[in-house]
Amino acid sequence: MQGLNEKEKSAIIKKCTPKSRVVKNTLSAFFVGGGICLFAELLRRLYIYLGESEENAGIFATLSIVLIGGIFTALGIFDRLARHAGAGTLVPITGFSNSVVSSAIDSASEGYILGVGSKIFTVAGPVILYATVSGVIYGLLYYIYLSL
């Protein structure tokens, strides 16, 4: 086996590796993700119906979805759903909620400062960092655009 070079090994691995089921995964992501967004939209309408302003209703709907994602994670339901839904639960803000709560649960045994405190954003960290960075870049471009 030392006779095989890396390319030959990769070719053999590729030949033997089953492909991800793209159609099935895409469809379940579409329906689960769409379902979550539909549910959030219903919540938004409910908040408006209850007398909130349009702007507040949107924020409350987002917060509700984050809360539900967190509770589902804590109950151990979220990961079972996500195994099949994939991007369907990851892309909406439920994915962000799950990544933070799951990290917190996981690191609780290591203490609240060096455990939860330092590890809560291990999964969500890239999103937070690069969302902030893109916000800064967008802000700069917008500022330049306005001053032209």
Binding site: T17, P18, S20, G76, F78, D79, L81, N98, I105, D106
Partner: peptide
């Protein structure tokens, strides 16, 4: 916990 993601993290696993 040691090698991959938090236990309750919801992700899709590859068929491999």
């Amino acid at each position: 916990r040691q090698f991959r993601n938090p236990i309750e993290y919801g992700g899709q696993r590859t068929p491999t």
